[in-house]
Design a protein around this nucleic acid. Structure first.
Lengths: 343, 343
DNA sequence: TTCTCTACTGTGAACGCTCACAGAACCAGG
DNA sequence: CCTGGTTCTGTGAGCGTTCACAGTAGAGAA
């Protein structure tokens, strides 16, 4: 059986071959292929057997030509690239999406649109209908690609809330604000009262939300809000280091720092140690992301885990629903406090 | 101009529309689209103008249906997954391939085949002609997928030399053996004479070659070969730590270690420091890969840089050549010694 | 019986493109 | 004048599917 399939590069069997083999018509085979409604059990069985015998696989190009769908989705990166590929979260996301889609037998097209030129080319490719929908990964706001795709009616799901964009775009995000609240509450529960923060970039939703959570908990605890305890960061290790130095200079009495990313937290740890502060005895440090960096640093970082596996699964689910005609939706997933040594 | 393209989700223009707009026939438009041979300059110009005006983009499904080619290639991972996505080299590779293909306007399909089940499904998908060729990333030997694809006549390029597979498969690899030689020679040039090694997994080509290079240089230097100086590793940090402990136990007089990966080298550094050995004063350590880990560890790792950017570019070049009908080819690229603090 | 309804099946026509072929126009050589 | 070549152009066919429609058969109701 399946001799020709295993053998050389013969012309692959078509639906005609299957129909002949099964003693039915093309139409019946096609119906079996598409859910098997209005097909007698006998025909069903005959067709399945014929498919197995011939090693038939449907020609997606022919199918796409008539249905107008491509049965594939794009995974679009609209950043200067380096950034994401170095981000472990990104990898989890990519892997998760690929797997979730594979479960539906849908291939994922990886698209990089770092430069303006590439963005144009890819927008064209997508709007021409070569993918049924797009998973968009772009941290920064005001992404022109998202707007264009949205305008062209392409089903779209963003990772993280796109700020500055109309509300009509689907997204899946972790509950950054709540995660930040959890962490700051945890720091307060340790008896700390001078809690500083190194924020994320404030043109990203994550940066904004995490800062908001920090402020809320301080207000909740009736602690006076001190501008000196807030310094901006950029999610990089070096940014964390610089931020910590500024904090130490502005507020030498601080006894805890909430850092908006683990990578920055690594920098903060380095700066604190250089300044002779012990962690967590003198200063408690809380990170965000639960990236490998959290385990690699010493002391190991207390941090907030984002549910990346669930995020990817939800992105795919929402996208497929949207392709199926449903309305855009926003999904917010809970985070989790991971206690380790640093706080 | 391009009002309909920018506007709603209208039915996209076809080659007919372009032909009508340009006042020529479908055939002429098609010829322009495919290289413009046997087309008068006047017609050429008219068609190009019409394409611009209508915002026409060729329907690849229709084209693929008749040409039998898909104008896309697969990037296939046949590992238990985690491994690669955590490997920074892998990211560089994926990015490089995507970009090199994008230059040819060829989309990349990312395929994960971790389980036996997925492997079957994906093999089927590929052999059915849904991609024109495959970039294969799989470190371990005897990959059944590679053999099957090769047997089905699918153009294939592996990353790293596939061991145990017939010679008829193309691959692109860094010169592991030569890199190992460079590193060990460097260690000897520092005056070290008891050079140990933590190898990679010996069912991977990299592991085998790097060990071979190590042995060659020792022989070359007329140093007696000591089994106690060789311990197996698995490319993981924990493996490096365990390896270093075994080395210290078996050969406490060692003064240098060649570690087959940077990640393992991190573990080696930790174990050495725990044992009270100073690096590089007491023991010099050389890594392999020049991954971010090399810079993140302290002291910074002296290591061997693999030319990942060139590897990806070559993989794509060889694959496209093979799709174009050329014979399989093997490409070996030189590595580079990067001197830092650890040796 | 006859009529209707349901479950199932087969058949032409698309889908948008490329390919092979036939023909037109032009030039050159006999 | 015809013949033979180039260079260019239009046309029908067909790639492998799905979809709409037109059947057919059998069951149940009138």
């Amino acid at each position: 059986m399946t001799m020709n399939a295993a053998g050389g590069r013969r012309r692959p069997p078509t639906i005609h071959d299957v129909a002949r083999e099964a003693g039915v018509s093309r139409g019946t085979v096609s119906r079996v292929l598409n859910g098997g409604h209005y097909v007698s059990p006998a025909a069903q069985e005959a067709v399945n057997a014929a498919i197995r015998r011939t090693g038939y696989v449907v020609n997606r190009h022919a199918r796409s030509l008539i249905t107008g769908r491509s049965d594939s989705v794009g995974f679009l990166l609209t950043e200067p690239q380096e950034r994401f590929f170095e981000d472990p979260n990104f990898n989890v996301l990519l892997r998760g999406c690929t797997q979730a889609l594979a479960a539906h037998d849908i291939p994922l097209l990886l698209m990089l649109a770092g430069t303006e030129d590439e963005r144009r080319r890819i927008t064209r490719y997508i709007t021409a209908g070569h993918v049924d929908g797009v998973l968009l990964v772009s941290s920064h706001s005001g992404d022109p690609v998202a707007e264009q795709l949205r305008g062209a009616g392409v089903p779209l799901v963003a990772c993280g809330k796109p700020i500055g964009l109309g509300s009509k775009v689907s997204y899946v995000a972790a509950d950054d604000r709540d995660g930040a609240r959890d962490m700051v509450r945890h720091l307060l529960s340790l008896g700390r009262r001078r809690v500083g923060t190194v924020t994320g970039p404030l043109d990203t939703p994550g940066g904004v939300e995490r800062l908001a959570g920090y402020r809320e908990v301080l207000a909740e605890a009736c602690l006076e809000f001190d501008e000196k305890l807030v310094v901006p960061g950029d999610y990089s290790r070096a940014g964390g280091e610089a931020g910590a130095e500024r904090l130490l200079a502005q507020a030498p009495d601080l006894d805890a720092v909430f850092v908006a990313s683990d990578l920055m937290a690594q920098g903060v740890l380095a700066a604190l140690q250089r300044a002779g502060r012990r962690v967590p005895q003198d200063v408690a440090v809380g990170g965000f992301d639960d990236s490998p960096a959290a385990l690699a640093s010493s002391p190991e970082l207390t941090t907030i885990r984002q549910p990346w596996d669930r995020i990817s699964a939800e992105m795919v689910r929402v996208l497929l629903a949207q392709i199926g005609g449903e309305d855009p939706a926003a999904v917010i997933l809970p985070t989790e406090l991971v206690k380790r040594e640093s706080a």
